[in-house]
Simulated assay, not measured.
Amino acid sequence: MKKYLLLFSVLSILLTGCSSKFAYNNIDWLMYWYIDDYVELDKRQKSLLDGHVDQWMTWHRQEELSEYKAQLEHIKWQLSQETISAQQWGQQFDNAKLHWVRVRDHVSPELAHLAPHLSDEQVNTMFAELEKQNQKRIEKHQRKNFEQRLTENIKDTQENAREFIGKLSPEQKNIIVTYTDKFQSSFDLWMTYRQRIQQAAHGMLLKERSKPDFAQKFLTLLTHPEAYQDEGLALVSAHNNQVYAAMLAALTTSLSPKQKRKAMDELQDIIDDISDLQED
């Protein structure tokens, strides 16, 4: 929920503040730092990846940042028109998802061609670490009961709203409590999906990466992940998006003039950060 309330349409790197702009401009070595948590690449593999990363970042800076900026400017304009309806927020959610889909579809063909360069040992190490992370998530989830998770979600959502619009009124706190209680848990369905697609990718990399049709099959896996989802996950996600859009609409309607100015300033700060990145 944080990504929608605070930054909303900026789906790649958080673009608030100098440290985040620094992260965007140094995504290549940050990416390797992240990858090292899962698999150690040799010099040849890093060299192959380097060229692709440079191309991806050039494309992203030239093509995608303008898309993020345009959506944020549209949200800011809508906010200036007194209210944003649940339907309008839902459309913004759909637009935000398209940002991720474009990035995924742009990098996936090259990832599919790079994947066969991993050794069996690297593949097994990577997926063992992924499963280790899965189990950590499951254990963390199970340490709290429903009431504890609900209380934590309410607290987090109120804090996120406070960062974006300032001090919350009792009415606004109650809006968040009311709508947060309507969310349906997707954790079990999401973990099942996550493990299913990881198992499919693991098996494909071990058994099929030397076959002529591997690149196309792996590309299909990367660009059509919904094939590994249960229908229930899609239904719960759609329900939660509707609830979240309704909550944002209610919060938008409740804004005081001071809160609206702060929200507009926050959006403009992100827009300015994107403009700076485009000029770098």
Results as ranks from 00 to 15, higher is better:
S85F: 05
K258N: 10
S20T: 00
V39L: 14
H239T: 11
L205V: 04
R137P: 04
T192Y: 03
I75E: 12
I84E: 01
L233S: 07
A245R: 06
G232I: 01
N153G: 14
N174K: 04
D36A: 15
W77P: 00
F164I: 07
V236A: 04
P257M: 09
Y32K: 10
D37P: 03
M126L: 08
G232H: 03
Q199G: 12
E64Q: 15
D230G: 03
D36C: 05
F127E: 04
M191L: 10
D28I: 09
L6M: 14
R143S: 12
Q81I: 02
Q122C: 09
D50P: 01
K97F: 04
S169D: 06
A201F: 05
L98K: 12
Y193D: 00
F183G: 07
W100V: 15
E129W: 01
I274P: 03
D36F: 08
Q268W: 07
A238C: 10
Q195C: 07
W89C: 11
F183P: 01
Q229D: 05
V103R: 03
D276H: 02
T16Y: 02
R143I: 13
K132Y: 10
Y24R: 10
Q268V: 14
N26E: 04
V101G: 09
I175P: 00
T125F: 02
A215F: 02
T178Y: 01
K21G: 12
T253P: 00
Q242C: 15
S19M: 09
V243N: 06
V177D: 15
E159N: 07
E82P: 00
G166W: 01
Q92M: 14
L277N: 13
W190D: 12
K262V: 13
A249I: 11
Q91K: 04
A249C: 11
A96S: 12
H113C: 08
E147C: 11
L233R: 03
K76C: 12
Q133K: 10
R209C: 09
G203I: 00
V39I: 15
K43Y: 04
E171T: 13
F214R: 00
A23M: 06
Q45P: 00
R196S: 09
Q142L: 09
Q229Y: 03
I165C: 08
K69H: 06
D28V: 10
M204D: 00
G90R: 05
L48K: 07
D50G: 06
Q195G: 04
K69P: 01
H224T: 10
Y244A: 15
S12F: 02
N160G: 15
N25G: 10
Q92I: 14
Q78S: 10
R102A: 15
L168H: 06
Q268Y: 06
R137Y: 05
T178E: 02
S47I: 10
E63A: 11
S108R: 04
Q259G: 12
I176R: 01
Y24C: 12
N241C: 14
K155G: 08
S169I: 07
K2W: 08
N160T: 11
N174G: 00
Y34L: 14
F8W: 02
R137S: 13
A112N: 04
M191V: 13
L267C: 04
S47P: 02
Y4A: 15
P116I: 08
H106G: 07
D156V: 04
L14P: 05
K173V: 08
A215K: 00
Y179I: 02
A161Q: 03
D276S: 12
